[in-house]
Computed example of a mutant assay.
Amino acid sequence: MLNHFADRSKLSGYAEASLALLVERGIMKGVSTHRLAPQTTVTKEQATVLVMKMLRSAGLSN
């Protein structure tokens, strides 16, 4: 699922399976078509969007 991201080798091993699930479900798409940017700082806005997408995916929010 993460093979098309050029920077996938920069992922921490513990996060790989979880991130693959988020990408598979369309919750997370990366900063571009071919970049995840796993070592960059996440903004409050990005974190909020991610949490809301996860809650919606779990059926816990509308």
Rank of each mutant, 00 (worst) to 15 (best):
L2H: 03
N3M: 09
H4Q: 10
H4V: 07
H4W: 08
F5T: 07
F5V: 11
D7T: 10
D7H: 09
R8W: 02
S9D: 10
K10N: 10
K10D: 12
L11V: 03
L11M: 07
S12F: 02
S12I: 03
S12N: 09
Y14E: 13
A15H: 06
E16P: 05
L19K: 00
A20G: 14
A20K: 12
A20S: 12
L21C: 07
L22V: 02
L22R: 12
E24R: 10
R25Q: 14
R25D: 13
G26N: 02
G26P: 05
K29L: 05
K29Q: 08
K29C: 02
G30C: 08
G30Y: 08
S32H: 14
T33P: 14
T33Q: 15
R35I: 00
L36D: 11
P38C: 04
Q39H: 10
Q39V: 03
Q39D: 13
T41Q: 15
V42F: 06
V42H: 06
V42E: 05
K44G: 03
A47V: 02
A47E: 01
A47C: 05
A47S: 08
T48C: 15
V49I: 11
V49L: 08
V49M: 03
V51L: 14
V51K: 11
M52P: 00
M54S: 13
M54A: 13
L55A: 09
R56L: 05
S57T: 00
A58I: 00
G59H: 03
L60F: 07
S61A: 14
